[in-house]
Design a protein around this nucleic acid. Sequence first.
DNA 1: CAAGGTATTTAGTCTGGCATAATACCTCCA
DNA 2: TGGAGGTATTATGCCAGACTAAATACCTTG
Lengths: 114, 114
Amino acid sequence: MEKIDGNKLRGHLDAMVLSVLDQRDAHGFEIMQQIEKQGSGALHMKEGTLYPALYRLEEAGLVKAQWEDDTSSRRGPRRRIYHITVKGKKELNRQRVTWRQFVDVVGNIVEAPK
Amino acid sequence: MEKIDGNKLRGHLDAMVLSVLDQRDAHGFEIMQQIEKQGSGALHMKEGTLYPALYRLEEAGLVKAQWEDDTSSRRGPRRRIYHITVKGKKELNRQRVTWRQFVDVVGNIVEAPK
DNA sequence: CAAGGTATTTAGTCTGGCATAATACCTCCA
DNA sequence: TGGAGGTATTATGCCAGACTAAATACCTTG
């Protein structure tokens, strides 16, 4: 499947991240993989895109992050586990409404018959 | 109805303009009005957005423009009438496929149940 | 001739997704 | 013992394109 142009994702990424975190807590790398996976191969989320988005969401109080207790003998560096807040859930609900409206309105124009 | 954030429109505007022109030839101002109208009031297309987009489309050979013969006694300045080209129609078809894919893929993530 | 709706052009700003690279941690294996 | 490779985060700077804003111009009406 063809990759979706990044420009088209502008403004929709926050909703995607919140939705993934609404399913379960996750660290950055995991969110990236989850989005790629659920995106049927049409999305290629990169670090430079995801992490700044997470910082924005944290700044806005929509998610909280905490460093994982690194007692385990997992390989790799410590991870920041992200968790959606109550405020974040409310925002996600709003974003979902907005998403449906967007699809409706833009779809109505793009798909307009002659 | 709440206005859709301009960021969300990035990358989708060309398809909207082409689709409007696929319905009938129109001048810039008319396209703006048409999009606002078909957008159920949720879109507020402004000149600074539309005209540069039209120049890009013309540059790319997707639309052709010609100055209206101003024989009539209409009020206002001369208008540039835009017309979709064969290349533009092909592009519109591609964009429609892309649009459906976008809605599918992003919707699948944004609307994902817990 | 000023006011107001129509129509286009242009200049400049800003958001946010992208590419790239640096850093670091851990395991495995030569 | 060190380098290859997968995991994970941080930081820098680029750039497309939608936005705001204002200038210009045309025609009608009061």
